[in-house]
Amino acid sequence: MARLELKSVGKSFGAARPADGVSLTVEPGEIVVVFGPSGSGKTVLLRMIAGMFEPDEGEILVGGRSIVGAAPERRGIGMAFQNFALFPHMTARDNIASGLGARAAASDAAPRVEAISRLLKIEHVLGHAPRELSNGQKQRTALARALIGYPDVLLLDDPLRNVDAKLRYEMRLELPNLLRRGAAAVLYVTQDYREAMAIADRIAVLVDGRLEQVASAEQIYVTPASVAVARLFGDPSINLAEVTPFAEHGTLSAMVSGAKVRLGSADGHLPDCPCWLGVRPEDLVISVSASEDAIPAHILAVTPMHEKAVLLLRLSDGTEWLTALPPDAPHGAANDAVFVRFAPEAALLFDRATGLRIGLSHRRQAA
Rank of each mutant, 00 (worst) to 15 (best):
S40E: 09
R181P: 04
N95Y: 11
F81S: 09
V33N: 04
V34E: 01
D283P: 00
S291L: 08
A85K: 02
P236R: 11
A329P: 05
L147T: 03
V279S: 01
D235W: 13
G58Q: 06
G64W: 07
P151G: 12
L167V: 12
D293G: 00
L179P: 06
L270K: 03
L178H: 05
V32F: 04
P281N: 11
A80G: 08
S8G: 12
A200T: 03
M79G: 11
M197Q: 15
L61D: 04
T323P: 10
A165V: 14
A146Y: 02
M255R: 05
H306P: 01
A333L: 09
L173E: 15
I238S: 02
I199D: 04
V243D: 01
D208C: 11
S216E: 08
D336S: 04
R172T: 11
A104V: 01
V32T: 05
R357M: 12
S253D: 00
V340N: 14
G64S: 13
A70I: 14
V68L: 11
A183R: 15
V186S: 13
A294G: 10
G332F: 07
S216P: 05
M1R: 13
I358K: 04
R168A: 08
V205A: 12
G182V: 13
A104L: 06
V163T: 00
R17W: 11
E248G: 00
H362R: 15
A71E: 13
E248Q: 10
T354P: 02
S257I: 02
L356P: 01
A347M: 03
F246I: 00
I67C: 02
F81A: 06
L300A: 07
L356Q: 14
R352H: 10
L143V: 06
A109R: 14
M197F: 07
F350E: 09
S291H: 08
S40Q: 07
V310A: 07
G234I: 02
A324K: 01
S12T: 10
R93D: 05
V186T: 15
R180V: 11
A70N: 11
G278I: 00
A259N: 03
Q365H: 13
G58F: 00
I116F: 03
D158T: 05
T91Y: 05
R3T: 15
R47G: 07
V214H: 11
F35E: 10
